[in-house]
Design a protein around this nucleic acid. Structure first.
Lengths: 364, 364
DNA sequence: CTGAAAGCGCTTACAG
DNA sequence: CTGAAAGCGCTTACAG
């Protein structure tokens, strides 16, 4: 089944409007741009012509002429991560205010893809780019800036003088999480982290280590590094931990989980009493793995996340977590870009602890 | 803190390249576009000049001149819904193959916002638009098409002759879910649906009703309509159901959940033995609410979802669901747009049952 | 207050 | 094979 599309008759241009209104194109442009008071009657004639032809200015031509485009590129690490989607919602809201349109894409945390995307976007003549960088050298981003396209770094503490940035204090947030666990009396804490090549992973690790050190408890921390900030990674990682501790018979990670253990297993005394997860998705997977093994949260093990994505409060045990103001972060980054791109500034937000049900004192 | 950005020296244009290479701009354009064999030595001179100036063509000018833009607009219902994000990933992959760039935005299922976005995108001179429609009249979409911007409808069975569409058979999928439950021996099935103003909700309802009717069991179905396709809606909806059945003391929906019931409550005989949720997010919320009340899945109540978003397999009880090939759907819709936009075609996919742990026979 | 003209950066027939 | 010219649709000084 295939039907040819009705070929659209060429769209009307300023010329057509000018002819119909019997004025010059310059005048049409003037009324379009609300310029140097056009005589009211002329203005009206032009407006009628515009309405008659249902004329709409060609933004490509406008962009070429003025060098300004309504398009703003956004490059995040991962479209499937709710953190970025919440942020994107905030960006979109701000962009909308200025009539801009958001071109959202993902770099998949890949330096090559980031470079390609950045160049494509800049080539597109976008008004600016909101970037969560993967390449810490910022090489291509800098190139793009030097081509005249403003870039603001999102969720990045990098503070080059060529571009603005916005971030939250990941170390402080991670420290908050550790302190909360400590204040609850936890002795042995496991840090469930994402891959160290991701800057957020490194900073959160540093924050936790610092907090533990401050109270002379550095050795009560065991660090686990998973290969992604996903529920799946959290789940299989915790399964492996459990198997290693003899709590669970190791099985194919891809297998369906063991039937629910009806009797809570006895955890070895050395088993961590709390898991500090560096994002909510990992915490989600961890909670599932724990539950599969019959380990109760928070009775047997406390669990804390990071981000406070919507799913955090919806988990079977509502998650205590470190909340990042995602939508505000997004909004603010767009605001910096739109308001004054040449004015480089570095904004830092502070995350806060949200206490829900997944943390409690250590099991006795 | 504010530092003026180094004002970028105007970017080089074809003229600059032509001057440096001592040829005309036409020739530069010819080598740029690989045209009518330019003499090899000239081509080389031009290429050197391009390299020297690190010249990159201005896509805005190209777009104006050729009327072709690499930008493809994508308008989905909700950025926070993993179904759309999985689909977007597929679209992006296909778009990338043709060097296109994806401009992703959300209509928030709002007719007004959809209209605004559509017009903005069309105004932008995009090469085409991938739209999940909210406005069933398709009025603005049609307007956009008549302006010459091809639109392909995503996740929509609307089959106007003006634009292509791609969808999955929601009725068939919903019927599949009902049949699975029926074959397990369930007697009383509750349909947990999203808002009826959303087309997917209506079609899935119809599919379930039909399947029940076919075996003369229409009256074993009870339909619940929630106000959103979210985990939150599923959770509070099921809580209300439970309260209504006397299983749970009604509480403020926003309150933290009741402490885990340690003793499985006895469900009234009339209480549904299975919940058929019209998307995975609702199922997720339902599972949480059930768990909060001490109702076991699948021992006390079976649960089936729809979509198979990544979280489905990661839930505390891995979810049986109706899988939609999200990434393929996205890929295919972009493919239709890119390959031959004037050739309208309607593609329909079929969903399939994925059996995991959340469904079993009815409690006795 | 309005019109004629130049020009944004590129591409495309069309001569030569 | 190459160059000169026209033109995509708009905006912006600059005369009048």
């Amino acid at each position: 089944m295939s039907i040819a599309c009705s070929p659209s008759p060429k769209a009307p241009s300023v010329k057509d409007v000018a002819r119909l209104a019997e004025v010059s194109v310059g005048t049409v442009s003037n009324v379009l741009n609300g310029r140097s008071s056009v005589r009211p009657d002329i203005r009206e004639r032009v407006e009628m012509a515009i309405a008659d032809l249902s004329y709409v200015p060609n933004p490509t031509a406008q962009a070429l002429r003025t060098g300004i485009s309504p398009l703003v590129g956004v490059a995040v690490l991962d479209l499937a991560n709710p953190f970025f989607m919440e942020a994107a919602t905030g960006m979109e809201r701000r962009l909308y205010q200025d009539g801009c349109i958001m071109a959202l894409s993902s770099t998949h945390s890949d330096v090559e893809e980031e470079a390609r995307l950045l160049r494509a976007l800049a080539g597109q003549g976008v008004r600016g780019i909101l970037l969560t960088p993967t390449d810490s050298s910022l090489e291509v981003a800098l190139e793009v800036v030097s081509r005249g396209v403003p870039v603001v770094l999102f969720d990045s503490p990098a503070t080059p003088k060529e571009m603005s940035s916005i971030c939250v204090d990941d170390r402080a947030g991670a420290a908050l999480a550790a302190q909360h666990l400590l204040s609850l009396g936890h002795r042995h804490i496991a840090l469930l982290n994402g891959p160290r090549r991701v800057r957020q992973a490194r900073d959160r690790l540093a924050g936790v280590e610092k907090a533990m050190e401050e109270v002379g408890r550095r050795k009560d921390l065991t660090v686990y590094e998973f290969d992604a900030f996903t529920a799946e990674a959290g789940r299989s990682g915790v399964r492996a931990m459990l198997a290693g501790a003899g709590v669970l018979v190791p099985g194919g990670a891809a297998d369906p989980p063991a039937a629910h253990a009806l009797i809570p297993p006895t955890l070895p005394p050395a088993f961590p009493t709390a898991f500090l997860c560096t994002n909510d998705l990992i915490a989600f997977g961890a909670m599932t793995a724990l539950r599969d093994a019959g380990v109760r949260v928070p009775e047997d093990v406390s669990l804390i996340g990071f981000d406070d994505v919507p799913v955090a409060s919806q988990m079977s045990v509502p998650l205590t977590t470190i909340r990042q103001p995602m939508a505000e972060l997004g909004w603010a980054s767009a605001d910096i870009l739109l308001r004054n791109p040449d004015n480089v500034q570095h904004q830092r937000f502070y995350p806060e602890l949200v206490t829900r049900s997944s943390t409690a004192g250590p099991r006795s």
